[in-house]
């Protein structure tokens, strides 16, 4: 399974050849971002992002609140409009590569009182494969059940989702992405406010995905565990402060640049820009 996916050359060939991409996009990279800027109501949230993520890494994305970590992720997945820039997934635009991408949104982004069971939610990961109008079948439920077993929630399959704890809800979202069987995973704060058991379960799953050659991008908050969990690190504060192997970029200097002092200037500039634009209208 793993091998067959790795050997599938479609994306690379197309990416390198006909389209005539700018050289900055390496076709083999699971995520390649060039000059990406996103603004909400004219206020830039991320500026001129350039990223090149190597395949098969566990990638942590860290930065202070409001640094644009979630926005970066959503912009890559075309969930928020980009002001400028390009994103390539294995050398192709996202819309051509959706089947290769698994998304784990923030837990707070949905209403957990919604009338569905745990299994129903996890089975949503297989809808893409099912296509239009076809009802959820046994095979989907089987795949969903396998994913639930991986996150240790098989016993909860038929519970209503509001009966789960926060950590269990997070694992349900993870299971849903696992049921997609993607090659690159975007996880938005999976470790936020979870219990120790869930944290261990998620780390176990990350390592399992890495072993199978998958790439995981994880928005993360806890600097204490960065070195332990991630082998690649993106430090973000509106722009990319550093991106590289954790051992190289996780330095006091970069932390200061990401979290402290000087960058407030940048955010002030952004506010000024938004005022200027608003006034000009």
């Amino acid at each position: 399974m793993d091998q067959s996916l790795r050997e599938r050359p479609v994306a690379r060939l197309r990416g390198a050849g006909s389209v005539g991409l700018p050289e900055e996009h390496s076709p083999g990279s699971p995520l390649s971002v060039h000059d990406l800027t996103v603004a909400y109501h004219r206020k830039p949230v991320i500026w001129d992002i350039d990223l090149e993520i190597p395949e098969g890494k566990l990638v942590g994305i860290v930065g202070p609140n409001g640094a644009g970590k979630s926005t970066l992720m959503k912009a890559c997945l075309e969930l928020v409009p980009r002001s400028s820039g390009e994103v390539r997934i294995f050398g192709e635009p996202y819309r051509a590569q959706r089947k290769l991408v698994g998304y784990v949104p923030q837990r707070e982004s949905v209403d957990w009182d919604f009338p569905v069971s745990v299994l129903d939610v996890v089975a949503m990961g297989t809808y893409g494969r099912l296509g239009w109008l076809r009802p959820v079948n046994r095979r989907c439920k089987g795949l969903a059940m396998e994913a639930l077993e991986k996150v240790g929630l098989a016993d909860f399959a038929h519970r209503q989702i509001s009966q789960l704890s926060g950590g269990q809800q997070q694992r349900v979202f993870l299971a849903r992405a696992l049921a997609q069987d993607a090659r690159v995973y975007f996880m938005d704060e999976p470790f936020a406010a979870v219990d120790a058991a869930t944290e261990r379960a998620i780390v176990g799953i990350l390592h399992d995905l890495k072993r199978r050659g998958r790439t995981c991008l994880v928005v993360h908050h806890d600097l204490a565990t960065v070195e332990e969990y991630f082998d690649w690190l993106v430090m973000l504060n509106m722009r990319v402060v550093a991106s590289g192997p954790t051992a190289e970029v996780f330095t006091a200097e970069n932390l200061r640049k990401t979290y402290g002092g000087k960058l407030t200037l940048l955010s002030e500039a952004a506010t000024a820009v938004s005022k200027e634009a608003g006034g000009a209208e």
Partner: peptide
């Protein structure tokens, strides 16, 4: 009946549905 699964996905988690290309 026909759009049961699509509507359920949309109502529950629009962002995820969009990320999957619906």
């Amino acid at each position: 009946l026909a759009l049961f699964k699509e509507f359920r996905l949309l109502c529950f988690d629009e962002g995820y549905a969009r990320s999957m290309g619906w």
